[in-house]
């Protein structure tokens, strides 16, 4: 009886399964296949072209001894944490402001979302000019009379990464705002009425009732922002090209430069494998909590 049922189970929704095969195959071959290929070659001394002369962990040893890589990782950590926190806070704050049924909401929403329509390269170049001490913000403030005013983050090794962060937040927070706004609009008006009847202040309603209800929206925003953080490259290239010195290098840039400029594939693959490991370290516990936990609850 059970034996007779099993093939049925496989053939159920056959059309849907057949239709999914190309996508599954692409994901397996392109994503998993290429990842394995990259990891395998990170143990070789491939130069410009992939070869299979295995050298063990040499590439990784060199990687973790290279100052440029260490600075890249540090920058990514600062940039990642700050942009995650700030994007979500600013995005949510702007969304609550827009949610107060103000006039010209559409206009304001469009203006705030507009930077997202620009590519990172354009964003980077624009902010490079704005932050340039010779003709940007510093120049304008000084010409207004504050002669000693200094604001040149892109030319200061210690804070250059924050200069890049400003541009990233400017570009990205509009999108987060729109997502949050959609989430806020999804909250049932009855809940607001109930809160008002109970005399709960507005800010308390947001923090203790609305935010917990918006969990899926926050997760969406989180995934979008994190994906952007790990692959940040074009913004840095356009804004500082890693400078001054190597103070604003990021891992993706290290990979690209090792691969094509320095013609050292092995080193590039070792670096990209480390990037993958970093992502997994964050992703695996999260996925475990998110999905593993649910199964147990059932």
């Amino acid at each position: 009886m059970a034996d007779a049922k099993r093939p049925n189970q496989l053939l159920r929704n056959l059309n849907a399964k057949v239709a999914a095969i190309p996508m599954v195959a692409t994901a397996l071959v392109v994503f998993v296949g290429c990842t394995i290929w990259t990891i395998v070659h990170s143990f070789t001394k491939s130069k410009l072209l992939p070869k299979t002369d295995f050298v063990g962990l040499d590439q990784y040893e060199r990687l973790w001894k290279t100052n440029k890589w260490l600075i890249s990782i540090e920058n990514l950590a600062i940039y990642g944490i700050c942009s995650l926190v700030l994007s979500i806070c600013i995005g949510f704050f702007l969304a609550t402001l827009l949610d107060q049924k103000i006039r010209f909401e559409n206009t304001i929403r469009t203006i705030i979302l507009y930077p997202f329509a620009l590519s990172f390269v354009v964003t980077g170049l624009t902010w490079q000019w704005i932050l340039n001490p010779d003709f940007g913000v510093q120049k304008i403030v000084r010409s207004l009379g504050w002669e000693s005013f200094a604001f040149d983050p892109l030319y200061n090794q210690d804070i250059v990464i924050y200069g890049i962060l400003i541009a990233a937040i400017w570009q990205g927070s509009g999108l987060i705002m729109v997502i949050m706004l959609a989430g806020l609009r999804g909250i049932d008006q009855e809940i607001w009425k109930a809160a008002r009847v109970d005399g709960i202040p507005k800010w308390k309603t947001y923090i203790f009732i609305v935010i917990p209800m918006m969990r899926p929206v926050f997760v969406t925003a989180l995934v979008l922002i994190t994906a952007g953080i790990v692959k940040v490259y074009d913004l840095v290239v356009a804004q500082t090209n890693g400078g001054p010195g190597i103070a604003s290098e990021v891992p993706a840039k290290y990979v690209i430069e090792s691969m094509f400029k320095n013609q050292n594939l092995g080193q590039a693959f070792a670096a990209s494998t480390m990037m993958l490991v970093t992502v997994l370290i964050i992703l695996v516990p999260y996925a475990y909590l998110e999905y593993g936990g649910k199964r147990r609850a059932k």
């Binding site: 290279t66 100052n67 440029k68 090794q157 400078g243 001054p244 010195g245 190597i246 103070a247 430069e257 090792s258 400029k261 320095n262 050292n264």
Partner: peptide
């Protein structure tokens, strides 16, 4: 590439 990375760091820091 390695020399360039060292030099640009040295020259700016």
């Amino acid at each position: 590439g390695q020399l360039e990375d060292l030099m640009v760091e040295f020259w700016n820091d």
